[in-house]
Design a protein around this nucleic acid. Sequence first.
DNA 1: ATAATCTCTCTAGTAACTAGAGGTTCAAGG
DNA 2: CCTTGAACCTCTAGTTACTAGAGAGATTAT
Lengths: 146, 146
Amino acid sequence: MLTIGKLSDAAGVKVPTIRYYEQIGLLPAAERSTGNQRLYGAAVRDRLAFIRHARDLGFPLEAIRDLLSLSDNPAQSCAAADRIAQSQLLAVEGRIARLMALKSELERMVAQCAGGSIADCRVIECLGNHAHCTTDHGRELAEVSE
Amino acid sequence: MLTIGKLSDAAGVKVPTIRYYEQIGLLPAAERSTGNQRLYGAAVRDRLAFIRHARDLGFPLEAIRDLLSLSDNPAQSCAAADRIAQSQLLAVEGRIARLMALKSELERMVAQCAGGSIADCRVIECLGNHAHCTTDHGRELAEVSE
DNA sequence: ATAATCTCTCTAGTAACTAGAGGTTCAAGG
DNA sequence: CCTTGAACCTCTAGTTACTAGAGAGATTAT
């Protein structure tokens, strides 16, 4: 049996995060030692690896909760899991597109920096007035920072 | 003079967000009408447009706060503004790289979905065990969801 | 036995807002 | 002039996914 610290090392998830996952019901309430410390077996370690990997892939915890409930009932169709992954893929593609536009604008801003005083600084100027920017991608940037 | 609602429309920033920006000191405390309602002039409208555009570009509010203090003292060198924009550019490039890796993994997961039951579902399986994935980009995905 | 390290619970803080309650002010129509 | 409805006010609390810290108990190493 693993203590929470060992589990943390094994799964690459910080100790308070593990307790947090238990608190919100992503992980089951852990067994306890005589001294009230949490003890974990391999099943929880795998479940935590699942969560961690899905988080790395950008899945929100709610989607992960859904995926876990799917894998807890393995008789179902995988259509739902596929749907979740699909929508995540779409979101990622959208994020990439917006970040690319953003990157080119930032590159232009940095390239135009005259090295002079703020008064002539293109960075400030461009941020102050989007009309000064050569590219036009106003609205589609709106959700970049989501 | 603009009321907060007009300013909101003019700058594309929601009313509660404007009040929030005032609260955290990004915008100066507004003038008030006799009935205690906020009134704004063109200077604040421009400042808000600046904030909004920078937010669209993914700058965190703290970076925006720095940029604003720079543009409030226009005699300085623009090196600091450039540095902020540079670091934002770097962050964006990193995010793009990680999202691209993520995208290919999601695509593979979706492509492998057999349409069968959860028991054979590659989506679940791949999420459960990163070793099953063909690409190897473990650690560099760690900050994707920041 | 004692010191160092873990672990426990609980509260509060983070970013950047958003939502809602409960009350006031303003502009327009009758 | 009066009323209605929209817009405004303040304040609190909720969101996501954690992170940090306090103060106390448990375990491990020497």
